[in-house]
Write a protein that binds this DNA or RNA. Structure first.
Lengths: 226, 226
DNA sequence: GATGAGGTAGACAGATCTGTCTACCCGACA
DNA sequence: TGTCGGGTAGACAGATCTGTCTACCTCATC
């Protein structure tokens, strides 16, 4: 459940209640569409209390994004571990992880992409937080890839594909097609490492497809030479 | 120029001026962030005139999306033709086409994805228009692919990747990294068809894995976007 | 028991947003 | 010439939004 927490307010301090309410409303209904009054009412907090904790709406937005960053990255890395195959390519964890996300009934896309679209250049700190989140996501993806010179680029390509999938999942009737697209985009990488890269040849300058990425047993090469 | 027209209002009928103003404002600053008053002032039109042509803001939003759909698809298909390589894989036209889009100084992402994010479920007709636009885009991409049973799925995967790129171009400092991601995501497909599939190994269910390094398709230079 | 931190309820100001309405203007054309 | 479609200017209503402010309450701790 990467998106929302069930909104258990009782007993929590005011600031926490505000953040929980902000999360639910900002994520599910949009930042611009949600007035401060609504957050205040949902958090069951007095207006003055709100403004004591957050000087203005923008500060709440940034606090929401900070927390969402922590929550989401924690969920994402944990899900990758959870879905990691016993044997074979660790990258295979990606599709079930994203599938889990899209299956959440409260799914409404990526909070960071949505915020960038909603706020544009009006709150640059929000864009910066989005960038940080994508960097962390990319790093988590890189951890699934074998070390190589192209690993960062591969990870960025995969992160880009995932964000395309996440966007499409917001207007497509169900998550099947976007997930299929993700599988199709990842397949070259999955196949490559799954068979040890034997059927591929290193592309020196570029490649997502690079084989030097996978540890090829030297012995094999030597034997082949002989 | 897929995004905005220079706003030449003089002589045009009122409805046209309104649509031009709406386009510039909705696309560049967002739909929710743009009040009807602002559209009216920009269009240099009287309020009553506006409401005579459009019963409400939502109607204007839909008209804007309709027109944007026509404009964008016309630009996209034309650009694909323009960048189509003399020989080799027609799919190679994709990267320079998207590069051209991202290089537009008024680029602010995909109007349809942005609208879906901004409006969510509050205006279902807008979501439907987005879906229609993506279908048309996918069809244009499919035209670049060799006919096969998997062509629709390949086209959908590519469209998804493009939308990821378009989203990332909205928060990344420049368009270089997203474009590189696009190249990396497309490479397997480019390689495949470029050499007629000779050097590739088909995987039964879907796609094809490249087995040989091929020259990276030339991409057009793009101006740095500040 | 006094005090102060942290909380509540809610009125209010000022801006902005959508949408309505009145009153007037102008030029094409029957 | 008179009419009418299409246009203008702008006041206004009512909602909503951000943010301020007053007045009061509650409770742990000194």
């Amino acid at each position: 459940m990467p998106t929302t927490v069930p909104l258990k307010l009782e007993g929590r301090p005011a600031r926490e209640r505000i953040l929980l309410a902000a999360h639910a409303l900002f994520y599910c209904e949009g930042i611009r569409a949600t007035g401060v009054d609504r957050v205040i009412a949902t958090a069951e907090v007095a207006k003055l209390t709100f403004y004591r904790h957050f000087p203005g709406k923008n500060d709440l937005v940034l606090a929401y994004l900070e927390r969402q960053h922590e929550n989401w990255i924690a969920w994402f890395t944990a899900a990758l571990v959870r879905h990691r195959p016993r044997r074979g390519n660790p990258l295979a964890a990606l599709v079930p992880t994203i599938a889990e996300w899209l299956a959440d009934p409260r799914f409404r896309g990526c909070a960071f992409l949505n915020t960038v679209v909603e706020l544009g250049t009006t709150l640059p700190a929000a864009t910066a937080l989005c960038r940080r989140n994508k960097q962390a996501m990319t790093a988590a993806i890189a951890d699934l890839l074998p070390p190589s010179r192209q690993r960062p680029r591969q990870a960025r390509a995969i992160a880009t594909a995932i964000d395309g999938v996440v966007m499409h999942a917001q207007f497509e009737p169900d998550a099947k097609a976007p997930l299929q697209a993700l599988r199709d985009l990842l397949r070259p990488l999955l196949v490559e490492a799954a068979d040890g890269g034997r059927k591929t040849v290193p592309t020196p300058s570029t490649g997502v497809i690079a084989t030097e990425a996978t540890p090829v047993p030297r012995t094999r090469k030597l034997r082949a030479k002989k």
